[in-house]
């Protein structure tokens, strides 16, 4: 019983961070139907940025989101205009090729600057835990989950209650309609893409404290993000929170009760099971193109 509760707690805490990590990819998909595989590279890039800033200044790595998020916002914005805008005018698989290419470039650049060895950010609370009723709440996990909740709430409010959010949601719903009422669709797409990358930036800072990372970690995180947004429903922000929690719980339970070796298979199994059983995900619009047209 204690083991089960412990596994659930760890799963929930990690789920909060996963939700933030996947929210950016989900936002970008929801607005422009581009599966941005570059998110993986961006995430790791932000983790390395956090590492360097933390080493140089000694500031709390979780608070460094204040710096990494705007940095990645700029990176995302530039990426949109240089690569994404042209690739998405062709077809979906081309945009995939482009964004995968960008992840490779990011990995290469990171390896040139920081090398290929695993790094980790270890503030003094990294190995401490709160203990409540005999259950362990690792401090790093708790703080990271709180920061993730704050960032996600901010993102949600931005989308719901600002004109930028309104234009993003309107453009996601119908770009032709958006153009008609005077929304600058092109800059709205750029803004949504930049926001999505910025969310990965925030996520990168958090995960730098929780897990060791190296350039090739990007691939693992891409798989995880994909599984979360597929599970939750592509394009649905609340869905990605739910999907993240489910995946994190499943991983935590699998590694407790089956074997850590198979925990890595959880996201992929989840993708396949969801798409076979319920293609529209837990929340969110249908994925089947032919159904939406009928």
């Amino acid at each position: 019983m204690g083991t089960l509760l412990q596994a659930l707690i760890l799963g929930l805490l990690v789920g909060g961070v996963y939700a933030l990590v996947a929210s950016g990819m989900n936002l970008i998909f929801g607005v422009m139907q581009v599966v941005n595989l570059a998110q993986g590279g961006m995430l790791i890039l932000s983790a390395y940025l956090t590492y360097t800033l933390w080493e140089a200044t000694g500031l709390d790595p979780l608070l460094l989101v204040v710096i990494t998020t705007p940095c990645l916002l700029v990176v995302g914005w530039a990426t949109y205009y240089i690569f994404i805008e042209r690739s998405r005018t062709t077809d979906a698989s081309m945009a995939l090729v482009t964004t995968f290419g960008l992840t490779l470039v990011t990995k290469g650049v990171i390896a040139l600057i920081w090398g290929n060895e695993p790094r980790s950010v270890t503030p003094d609370y990294a190995n401490r835990s709160f203990s409540v009723l005999g259950l362990r709440f690792p401090q790093a996990q708790v703080y990271a989950c709180l920061v993730a909740a704050v960032v996600l709430t901010g993102l949600y409010l931005l989308l719901r209650h600002t004109w930028l959010g309104q234009s993003i949601r309107a453009t996601a719903s119908s770009s032709e309609g958006a153009r008609l009422i005077g929304i600058q669709v092109r800059s709205t797409w750029a803004a949504a893409f930049a926001l999505g990358v910025a969310a990965a930036g925030a996520g990168g800072s958090l995960l730098s404290v929780l897990y060791p990372f190296m350039p090739s970690s990007a691939d693992h995180w891409i798989g995880l993000m994909l599984s979360i947004i597929v599970l939750g429903g592509m394009g649905s922000l609340p869905g990605s929170v739910l999907g993240a929690v489910v995946i994190a719980l499943a991983e935590s339970l699998t590694s407790t009760y089956v074997s850590p070796d198979w925990a890595a298979a959880v996201p992929y199994l989840a993708i396949i099971l969801v798409l076979v059983a319920r293609p529209q995900g837990l929340l969110g619009a249908r994925l089947r193109e032919d159904m939406s047209r009928a």
């Binding site: 599966v35 979906a92 995939l96 798409l275 076979v276 089947r288 193109e289």
Partner: peptide, 10 residues
């Protein structure tokens, strides 16, 4: 039961 992007992910 999947098409388009969903199949790519599958």
């Amino acid at each position: 039961r999947t098409r388009g992007i969903a199949f790519v992910i599958v």
